[in-house]
Design a protein around this nucleic acid. Sequence first.
DNA 1: TATTGTTATACTCTATAACTATA
DNA 2: TATAGTTATAGAGTATAACAATA
Lengths: 160, 160
Amino acid sequence: MARPEKNEPADADRNAPTATDDMLRAFIGYNMKRSFIVVREDLQRVLDPLGLKVATFSALSVVVENPDISQSQLAQVLKLERSGMVVLVDALEGDDLISRNRVPGDRRTYALRATPKGRRLWEKARAVVDAHETALFGPILDAGERALLLSLLQRVSSAL
Amino acid sequence: MARPEKNEPADADRNAPTATDDMLRAFIGYNMKRSFIVVREDLQRVLDPLGLKVATFSALSVVVENPDISQSQLAQVLKLERSGMVVLVDALEGDDLISRNRVPGDRRTYALRATPKGRRLWEKARAVVDAHETALFGPILDAGERALLLSLLQRVSSAL
DNA sequence: TATTGTTATACTCTATAACTATA
DNA sequence: TATAGTTATAGAGTATAACAATA
């Protein structure tokens, strides 16, 4: 007993009924995680040639959009701790993409501003990220579905 | 110059125009990340009383659904490394939720099975996770929108 | 040679706590 | 006392690489 000899090749396993995760697939959170992993990997791939990480791209984006924002405000918008911001701002400042400027009224805070180089890189990054999302979601969702997904996720992430 | 004296209270900042992340909000990936963070936190919160983590809940779920699955197959389904599975399976086995059984034909692999205790806990966890998603998304999305979001995310995460 | 499970290790991301300098 | 920024540290999650047993 126990299959005395099987002359099937090793890929018998691949022909065997594949293991399923159907029960997990019923949960939004599970699909959100798997989706996000794919999206983040591809996003990192396209940001890498620009010398940006996902976190630094996000931070640069908010600084471009909000000149003279402080590190604390930046941390608040991105929902991470002030201590974590220091590393991100250090990296962006080290690459001359943003500058830490002292403010006249309060010598504790910095007013963060994107440098011309930072604004140029951000424009490039914005185009790259847009192309990445189009290329990634294009084969899966049509324009309407993509807008719908964006809208639903915006509502969920805004109801934080 | 430079505001000689400002007798506004310290919450002048709070009345100031709040910093925005509108540019980032245009990207699906950004909203996906923020949404997932909220969902994961709440999921962990409800799984904690059951002694489960998100990862062990997922692994238990797949084992319940696929009796006699091997650790490598399990890792493949959950898209993580074999080495990472060892820790998860150790934890589940240590809590007597699954068992590692030797298979007759191949002494390298384990056939993983949920114990009766594991199946009972999984049933409870399934109900808890379902309630968590209903409570979390209920105030934000109606039933149709929730099904739509699930369907869109399933398509994205399946097109991996 | 290839595969399963294992161990040790390292890396990323993020959080916590304590400190400083300012207010 | 409270806040902005900083530092050091630690934890979670996951990946890489090398190894033993087995095929």
